[in-house]
Computed example of a mutant assay.
Amino acid sequence: MTLPEFDPAYGLWGLGLYSLLAATLLPGGSELALYAFLRQEPNLVFAALGVSTVGNTLGGMLSWWAGRYLPRWQKLERLPYLAAFQRWGSSVLLLSWLPLVGDAFCVAAGWLRLHWLPCCLFMAIGKFVRYWLVAQTALPH
């Protein structure tokens, strides 16, 4: 009896789902998942970068949406990172990939009612650059 061949498309679906969940308040390291995937399937680098970026950005937008619809129970003066958002606006979300504070940035952007489109674009750019750097370390040279 032989084992069935592994279809890399299933791995891409898993990578996308894991990247989405890792961008929410759930713990997880999507960088490690991307690294491991690319060590096994280096020929799928562009697909893996796209899937990871889209999944992680969708997860960040879920956090933005959660912040958008949270009740305004806290005064603006006490909101974490308020000064950064007042100075830089949605471009702060270029750093939404950072551990711990990245999720808070996404929630804060939603709570501050920043427009979703620039938030989504800045999130995607920051997350793509981070994944691209991970891919550079994972791929054989």
Rank of each mutant, 00 (worst) to 15 (best):
G67D: 09
A22P: 06
A9C: 04
S52L: 03
Y35T: 09
D7H: 14
G50N: 05
L26W: 13
S63F: 00
S63W: 00
P8W: 07
L15T: 08
L49N: 09
P42M: 06
G50R: 04
L62Y: 02
V54T: 09
L38I: 10
L62S: 05
L21N: 06
G28H: 12
V54Q: 01
L34D: 12
N43I: 00
L58P: 02
N56R: 05
Q74H: 10
L26A: 15
E77W: 00
L32R: 08
P8K: 05
G59D: 04
P27W: 08
L38Q: 10
L20T: 08
T53Y: 00
A66M: 15
Y35D: 06
R72H: 14
L76H: 09
L26T: 13
D7Y: 07
L25E: 09
A48T: 08
L62E: 00
T24I: 11
L26G: 12
W65K: 05
L15G: 08
G60N: 01
F37W: 13
S63Q: 03
E31V: 04
E31K: 05
L58H: 05
E5H: 10
E31I: 03
P27I: 11
L44H: 12
F6I: 13
F6M: 08
A47L: 13
E31W: 06
Y18E: 01
G55R: 05
S52C: 13
W65V: 07
L38S: 11
